[in-house]
Structures are given as C-alpha cells and as structure tokens.
Nucleic acid binder design. Structure first.
Lengths: 241, 241
DNA sequence: GTGGTATAGTTGTCAGACAACCTGGAGCAG
DNA sequence: CTGCTCCAGGTTGTCTGACAACTATACCAC
C-alpha cells in the first residue's frame, strides 16, 4: 500500500486496463473513483496520464475505452522496464550469461554522462541476454560506486541492475532519458552476440535519474533485430488546436 | 482559441515551459491557474501530462520546476512533429527532393495497416530529405485516397504530409504509434540515400490516428545515422511504490 | 553557535456542483 | 412503416472551495 492515492492508482488502473479486452468500456468516472477509493479529480489525473500513453481513449458524453490492443510481444517505451520484466510479461524465458563486474575510475566521457568528476570510482556491469541458445542483447551499466558497490552483485544477482535498484528502493528512481540510434556491430559486440561485424543493431543509451535529479546509472544496450519490438506513442502537437 | 480549456492550456503551457531556462521555477498552481484562466483542477491535469513527458518536475511542499533541459538539437519522441518542423526549430535548413506521388490500390499488407479493404484506393507520397547536398532521410507516406487526394499535392506542397494534414485541420489528428527498428539499407533505399547496401539505418514505421480512431496515414522513415538524435523519456514503473 | 519550533507557502487530495456533449428512444408527421 | 424532431439520461469536461501533507525558512530558547 502506497502512501499517495495517485501512485497506488497508477498500479491499480494499469492492472485493470490490461485485464480488459480491446475496445472494452471502462466504468464511468464517478463509479471508478468510488471503486478505487479516490476522488474523481485524482482519478482524472491518472486517466490523463494513461491517455497520454495511448492506453485509453476518452470521448466526451460517451465514455472511456481501452485503446485498440497492440500485439503483446512488443513493449512501449513510455515505461522503463528491465528486459527480464518485459520477457516475463511476454511469456518468454530469457537467461543471463557472461556476467562481468568490475570497478574502475571515471574517464572524461563517463564523468560527463554521470555528472561526476574524473577519477571517481565506478561500478560497471556487462552481460548478455540469451533466449534459448541465441544471444539477443548486450548490456553495459555504469554506476557511481556509492550507488552500487561491486560486493552487492555477488550473491543472487538476476541480471537486471534496474530491478536490483527498484527492489532496494534506494535511491528512488523516477525516469530515464533514452537515446535511440542504429549502429553497426563493433567486433567486440559482434562476437558477444554471434553476428558479423557491422551487422545492424538497435542501440539505446540511457541515463537513469533518481528522485533528486542525480544520474545514478548510464546504460548502453545493443539489441539484435527481430527479437524485440519497441514502439512509442507520440502525441500530435496542437499549438494551434 | 480552442473550445476546450485543456487543449488551449497544452499549447500555452508548453510555450511557457520552453521559454524558461532549465531548473527554473514555475509559478504556484493557484497563480498559474489564474494566469492561464483555468481552474486548478484543469491545470493539474495538464501538469500531470507534462510531467509524464519529463518536461517538468514537481516536489510537494516546494514547487514545480522545469526539468533539466534537453538540447534543442535533438527531438523527443513524445511529440509527433514533421522533420521540417524539427529542423526549423533546430535552426537547420533542409530541402525536399525526388518527390513522387502516385495513386494505387491497397494490397493485403497495406489494407491491414490502414484498416481498409484490399483494392481500396490509396495515395502514396515518397520523398527524400536533404541537408546541404547530402540526403539524410527517406520517407514514404501511404494514405487512403479519401483522406488525401493526389490532386491536393500538386501545388505548394512543402514536403510534409503531417504538416499538410495539420494545416488543413481535417481530419483531426490525435496521436501516432511509431515502431522503432534498426535495418540494413535495401538497394533501393541505399541508392536514394547515397550509402552502401546493408549500411545501418534507423527505421520508423508509424500509424497516424485521427480523432475517431481511424488510421489516416501509414508512414515509413529511414534515417541516416548521425544527422538526427532521437530520445524518449521513460517513466519508472512503480507497481510497488 | 546549536537545535528545536512555529510559520508561511507549496503541492496532494477531496467533495460537490454545473456545463457540454452524445446516445437512444419516445413521439409525431408523412 | 419511415423518417424526422425532440427530450431525457448518462458521460466526460470544468470549476469552486476547502483541507491535508509536506518543505524550507525565520525565529527563539539555550
């Protein structure tokens, strides 16, 4: 149970929406507010947030409806989730391999990305995600050592730095800024993902922010095409609506 | 002037936020609501929507602040904008070339994507975006012929189907669902963009939705790496906050 | 100086009300 | 029967006013 109605609502409402079939009609706002135990104003803030993510569709005088379903396989980029979480929701089994944890000191580029000083201690985690036998993603997380110590990764590390931080609950994570590119595989990545050098890969570079605005993780991901589907809902800017 | 306060507010607030420097503090909610001429409840719905896009940051008991600035050069994917609009905001000059407009009948794939029947009339627009002398993007828009007729593209077409539809104001566009991939250049695209076959390209495939939920445009874009920067703000899912 | 405490200002939430809008059916003219 | 108008009920959109929870600052006792 969360302290604030809005946060609890986000989870409850997401659960409800995902449990309903496409085009299904949601209860009216007064009814839903009562059922969720919040005021209609708070409910509407949450609704607005879900509408912005394209999960629901509202029509004045008619009702609120679950948006047309997108194939379950792919993942919307509005929410930051670990690959493990996405895979689990999709009913896939993935495993992690080739885990490498090391401590190092920030060079100029890393210091800039993490908003630190050159020479500050860093923890770096590299790993490969496999489905069945094939590697499909390569991940590198770099964190300040005071956020995540090397020792913490020794026992029972499942492979997701994000999930680890979320479970620990400290620092409190709020959002990430993810940059999207297409790259050719370097020889190192090509070997890890068992593809040819210069083969096409999707590339995410993400800064993960905590509640106080600090950068707590810089994450680089390489995805093999065809095994993941990423999409984003984009709003039409209505400067002159 | 828009009929609904919320829509007007979206534009006004976006303008205000973008005009302020990073970390700047916004007026308090009561003050801002009064200034914008809406109630605090409506203002808060808009604020929640902007918060979801990572544009502002709210701290209870303290205030609301403009989020750390994202460089104007690159473009957040939360908002759907034409390349021309993005370029203009970035101070770049781009020009369109190799415009091809044709009418055709929907095959099975196109019918499925646009939610039409096989054989329905389509308008297809192909074009290349250049900066200076180099081509940097290839675009293909496919629309139902009743949405956009071939004749409408004859005079004064600037190169953006999106901007054209927005200017016309009919149908009213609401959002797009954009799928993101990395692909190797086909021989056709490679020739158009003056790259080698199988060179790495970023690939967007977007369905553009109108107010009534109809798919009014299916758009495919190929981007040359290095000339565009795309990012997305991702919220941390707080199922157990 | 130090630490605790009041205080003003901010966001978070609530309740109730009315306006704008859409849908479907009743009623009526043809 | 058909087609039209009108109306009533239900839904989302917005507003008002209020109180709760929280934060930073100023102030005071020590």
């Amino acid at each position: 149970m969360s302290a604030y109605p809005f946060r609890r609502l986000q989870g409850d409402l997401a659960e409800l929406i995902q449990s309903l079939p496409a085009e299904a009609r949601l209860p009216s706002e007064p009814a839903l507010a009562k059922r969720m135990g919040v005021s209609r104003a708070t409910l509407r803030e949450a609704m607005r947030s879900f509408e912005g993510q394209g999960m629901i569709r509202r029509r004045q005088g008619v009702g609120t409806f679950v948006a047309a379903k997108v194939p379950v396989m792919d993942s919307g980029l509005e929410m930051l989730e670990s690959l493990e979480t996405i895979a689990q929701r999709s009913g896939l089994t993935v495993r992690m391999g080739e885990l490498q944890v090391q401590q190092l000191e920030a060079d100029e580029e890393q210091a800039g990305l993490l908003n630190l000083k050159v020479g500050d201690k860093l923890t770096q985690v590299r790993r490969i995600i496999f489905t069945e036998a094939r590697p499909i993603a390569a991940l590198v997380d770099t964190l300040p050592a005071d956020i995540l110590a090397v020792e913490e990764l020794s026992s029972g590390f499942t492979g997701s730095v994000l999930d680890l931080l979320l479970r620990r609950g400290n620092p409190k994570l709020t959002q990430s800024r993810t940059e999207i590119k297409a790259v050719g595989a370097t020889s190192e990545v090509a070997r890890a993902l068992q593809v040819q050098r210069d083969d096409v890969l999707l590339h995410f570079a993400a800064q993960l922010f905590s509640e106080d605005g600090r950068v707590v993780d810089y994450s680089i991901s390489y995805f093999l095409p065809g095994h993941f589907r990423f999409h984003v809902i984009r709003q039409v800017s209505r400067h002159y609506g």
